[in-house]
Nucleic acid binder design. Sequence first.
DNA 1: CCATCATTCTATCGTTTTATTGAATGATGA
DNA 2: TCATCATTCAATAAAACGATAGAATGATGG
Lengths: 218, 218
Amino acid sequence: MTSQQDLLDTLAQVARALGNGHRLALLERLAQGEAPVETLATTADLTIGNASQHLQHLRRAGLVTAQRSGKQMIYRLTDERIINLLGLLRQVAETNLAEMERLISRLFAEDDADGVLEAVSRDELLAGLARGEVALLDVRPEEEYEAGHLPEAINIPLAQLEEMLGKLPHDREIVAYCRGPYCALSHEAVQRLRQLGYRVRRFEEGYPEWKAAGLPVT
Amino acid sequence: MTSQQDLLDTLAQVARALGNGHRLALLERLAQGEAPVETLATTADLTIGNASQHLQHLRRAGLVTAQRSGKQMIYRLTDERIINLLGLLRQVAETNLAEMERLISRLFAEDDADGVLEAVSRDELLAGLARGEVALLDVRPEEEYEAGHLPEAINIPLAQLEEMLGKLPHDREIVAYCRGPYCALSHEAVQRLRQLGYRVRRFEEGYPEWKAAGLPVT
DNA sequence: CCATCATTCTATCGTTTTATTGAATGATGA
DNA sequence: TCATCATTCAATAAAACGATAGAATGATGG
């Protein structure tokens, strides 16, 4: 009977590994693809030593694995389902926590003045793609695009948006996506492109969710 | 950009609420149905004060809600998806954590000497029920059975197993279930019934998972 | 084999969590 | 209204966590 509680304690240990904002940021970056410590530290805005320690913590919980490559240590998620786990955690938090709602609306406050920027759901996107009515735009950095992206997506990193407008079609609606639901890149891309007269909306999810759902990636 | 991290911090707060074995035990009990503090404290083997404090913690994280009923405070899960969240957490932990495997095999060590006790999957169970080839046995306490159970399940609490054998059919295989994958009740029931000559296996999940999957309950 | 670079380990300190105890609150029924 | 019961609140001490800085490790290129 006591080992029943041992199991729950072990489970709790895994949950506790998720219980820190910095570690969640590291996992979100890892959901885009494997990366060495330095990259992870930079995107999560941590010192190297600090990032290393958090990564050890995630490793002890079995959420990430590490592999040496030359003098670098490459980390990756142990399991695609971790993305689903994060998604479900987010769903539960969003529906049941008023605080969450407040933060989300603040993060995306400026956007939706006239309601036209409503996000495109996965089903809607799939339907639009099947009918050839939409073009996909990936606004993540080139490195993350190279590591994997949605089929037929055009990559224009946000930093080069205006320079690379030539790659965008004019005959179709554009759907922009980035790292996930909380990633602000596609929000900003949509705003800037709309000011330039493009017909564009954002995808409500991101690359990791698409991949975790078993949909094809390139 | 900083509010991106605020969101992750809030998410981390919810994860941290799951990061304690006692709180997971409370949630597992709540997955069976709502209950007052005293019941919860008893099943989680906590003092009342301690249980109350953990429940407050879960409430702040938006995972449970409380409602006064007379002089008792009734707690319940805010959201069925929390059961899915726990299930996914368990899956991830089981596949990626050697420690987990060790604990599970220890918990169920005696059982499977000859391999016949292999658990019945959800699909297999549904097929068997559809063909009328299996009878369902719910070995949880009567209180939990009353709060909800699988359709057509016979309730024989483990404590009264031998006294109530008369309720069991002899012409079909019996599938026993209880609170969930780690619950030992159905394991023990299967062992004891097999010694009495019954053809019986256990369901690999439990009532909460069945309900959370949207399958019919009574 | 030495200098260098990426990463991890160790030690420390301040902060947060947890369990425990006892007092306070809120509803009930005599 | 008072005594009682269920629960929560408040205060404390022990344990776990998180950030930081500097030493140690392990691979590489000369």
